[in-house]
Amino acid sequence: PPQTPIRAAMHSIQQLRGELTSNSDRPSGILMVYFRNCTVDPSEDIMKRVEQLSQIFSQKFAQAVGQRCEGLGKKRFTLGVQLYYKVMESMLKSEEKRLSVQNFSKLLNNATFHTSLLGCSLEVVLATYVGYSLKNGSSESPETNLCFPWILDVFQLHAFDFYKVIESFIKAEPTLKHDMIEHLWRCEQQIMESIAWKSDSLLFELLKQCREDGPEEQAEPPAT
């Protein structure tokens, strides 16, 4: 039957859930091997962090959408965690091939990396459902409160850190549909054009460090 916008949005939701049915909300055997290969095994920290972020996410979700929707928030979070572990495994496989290393201790013990990756995974899940709400003509739906950059505030993520995972996320998850890739591109644009320039942004610290380190490359001469 012809794809109406609502049917297309519902199809996106079914596809997202279908893609993740074979993925558990716990690390796979392959991920556990990567964890064990680390100088410092990050397994416990990763599990603990997912649990903590689950509590925070559910509370904020209920505040934004309605207390009776806390269970819905937990379901969204579970989908996000499934995608998080799936993409993490794919990222590590490609890094292993690219760098010819198997010990990712620094990366896998980097809390900002995990929070950003989980944040991006949840953004994909939320955008899929919000897309349905908007196409369903219920722009008043409380779920539209969850539009980007809501997830940055929930996890108190610096926009610049979230920005860093987007491209690798898109490369690592080939099943992402074009409209979702476009959504993540719009998130990037929003970060680069405004959010990254807020007064408390990491960007200013990085720019200061660059200036202190001195320019590695000579500035281009002005065009004549």
């Binding site: 890094e95 690219r98 990366l107 491209e167 476009e182």
Partner: peptide, 21 residues
């Protein structure tokens, strides 16, 4: 619709972006 423009060089990946190379 907009195509995504990949900007990372071949020698850049998530490890470098989080200073974990």
């Amino acid at each position: 619709t907009q195509d995504y423009h990949f900007g990372l060089e071949d020698h850049e990946g998530i490890s470098e972006l989080f200073d974990c190379d």
